[in-house]
Design a protein around this nucleic acid. Structure first.
Lengths: 349, 349
DNA sequence: ATTCCCTCTGCAATCGATTGTATAGGCTCT
DNA sequence: AGAGCCTATACAATCGATTGCAGAGGGAAT
């Protein structure tokens, strides 16, 4: 037998308690329509609502208005150290506006992502934060377009006028290269991110441009794109580079996890960091300051990205604004994994 | 002007397409009522639904049935490295059952947590995972009880017959103590977790019992409870202990973050780990294998906890089962932060 | 005093799916 | 062949909040 669940208070009961019609009660409780109700009546209704502990039923409200005060988020891994703080900040900002965040984790499967968009749309989410989008023809993004869902990309860009909040990927990578060059490095290889992701592409471009700007050559084969942002993938790519690039003195990695993999590859090759080779990461994820040696990396403003993405999305939802891409600056965090190249390696080859 | 949002397909349209009444279409699409419909008709309806890309409207369904296929989760920090993998696993398990996870992050504020419970209840969540509960008189838990919401605690226990999924906190701490004792330590201090949390209390008890079982004394003042699970709090507590406990050779910490703080305190005191002092953590959170020295800690089965919590909750939701507490075993992970005590410190004082 | 207007409140329809009840039609059994 | 039963379908009410519309009442203006 089921416990007799205490039926929660509905609008009718509040109206009855206040001695008015439900429609009047509704208007009295909604700030946008309150001016239609006489002040003393509105007050009576609000008191009755407070006394009974009334909360509007989300399902009924959603059904009638089409809005759910729910925002969906698609991320590749809830536990991902890059996206977790972004999500947390976004959730906080949304919560202040009465919205809750519904997180879905399709991993790296674009079809699954599109499926989740459909599911979220059926739940009538008011908008969507996408952190899974790949550069071209992303099915999830297409699914949003099809349904006319307000959408903001986070830490991803997708071209074609979709608003996005990203860090300055090219600029961040350039900071890393400039730092290494400043230390005297000339022979720098790049452990790149997955090519279909905007971060993979832009950071690679940042690397190439900064090298060119410093007047340095990037021989063919000195850039190796990892198949995914992971430690194992980083190790694989770095191992290839170490074997291929004679005289390399630094590895600029597109991501901290890749850099950790690069640590592994260097260790296996018997190279000391930073005495024999320097390694830099990107993202400054939690705890990379504690590893040995502490990782020199590029800090991206996680919290701010989440907050701004939420703000942009809310603007789109409320005002239908067409906000463009917001690029946030990143900064270099100098730690122990970068140092001058070994003696005799400073001169250009 | 707003874009003309393409109205999504509803049941009436599917019914029309299949040439039947909406109620028949509803029964044909619901596996529990499909036997009430003639097989060829059911097939026709299902084809029509597939052709039109029909998805039942969640709000309408929720309004009518009272169920939302939504499960709420309250965690102290989405980005918390302990809870993130638990959430991810729970979300995956729930998703397989058609449920989505609505995460709310009240931080450490119990009133805020209770407020979120009310909000989630208004959204008609089918059940709730609580990871924020404190030991006694938790307002969030009370709010769940009041509303008769199916609830499962995760990584927290709350007494009084509330089902919970936890790791063996006492046993885990005992493993750490036994390990240290096995290495020859006799003078061990405990950096405890917050007293109002079950993990804080139980791990402390585990410490005390294991010490007693080993015939070792825990002088007064050799246990210091941190005010929160954080690196700074760990440093503060460890600093106190180092000053207070003469001859201490090991710090058994209730949590990895506290252990990281203990690292900081030891460094500031000029103590080398593990040559001068051993440190152990608890939880085996990501990347503690990369810090220097790699942290010896207790591994708790994060993914399994999330999965089992989801399973237990679904059982309660579907079958109203009254599952009790599930205690999962933890294991010692031996790494570099623990070693034999300095010479001459092995003998009991 | 009559008309008009304006403010406030009530009425009723609506959103979309589910489900208890009624009924039409076909079948079996005698 | 007729009665009765059973299956498959349709009808209509319902969940709870919102909102266009109508109308009551009061005040002002002529």
């Amino acid at each position: 037998m089921t416990t007799p669940i205490p039926r929660s208070i509905n609008l009718r009961q509040v109206a009855e308690e206040a001695g008015v019609h439900p429609s009047t009660a509704s208007r009295a409780l909604n700030s946008a329509t309150r001016h239609l109700v006489a002040a003393p009546v509105a007050e009576r209704v609000q008191e009755a609502a407070a006394r009974l502990g009334y909360r509007p039923d989300a399902a009924a409200m959603s059904l009638r208005t089409g809005r759910s005060r729910l925002v969906g988020a698609l991320v590749p891994g809830i536990a991902n150290p890059v996206f977790a703080p972004i999500l947390a900040a976004a959730a906080a900002a949304l919560s202040a506006d009465g919205h809750a965040l519904l997180v879905a984790d399709p991993g790296d499967d674009p079809e699954q992502a599109a499926e989740f968009v459909a599911e979220l749309a059926a739940r009538r989410v008011d908008g969507l934060l996408l952190a899974t989008v790949s550069l071209r023809d992303d099915p999830a993004l297409a699914a949003c377009r099809l349904r006319g869902l307000p959408t903001v990309l986070v830490n991803r860009s997708g071209g074609e006028g979709v608003p996005a909040v990203v860090s300055d990927n090219r600029g961040g990578m350039a900071l890393a290269v400039e730092h290494l060059v400043g230390l005297g490095h000339r022979r720098i290889a790049h452990v790149g991110g997955p090519a279909p992701l905007s971060t993979g592409l832009l950071r690679r471009e940042g690397f190439e441009r900064a090298m060119a700007a410093a007047g340095l050559d990037v021989p063919p084969g000195w850039i190796e794109a990892a198949t995914a942002y992971g430690r194992a993938e980083g190790e694989a790519a770095a191992t290839l580079l170490l074997a291929r690039c004679s005289g390399v003195t630094a590895l600029a990695c597109a991501n901290d996890l890749l850099a950790l993999g690069a640590y592994d590859a260097c260790r296996r090759a018997g190279l000391r960091i930073p005495a024999d080779i320097s390694v830099t990461g990107h993202n400054d994820m939690p705890m990379v300051d504690l590893i040995e040696p502490p990782l020199t990396t590029i800090r991206i403003p996680h919290e701010r990205m989440g907050r701004e993405a939420a703000r942009l999305l809310l603007e789109r939802i409320h005002r239908g604004a067409e906000g463009g891409t917001l690029v946030l600056a990143s900064g270099l965090v100098r730690r122990g994994s970068s140092g001058p190249p070994p003696d005799g390696m400073t001169a250009t080859a």
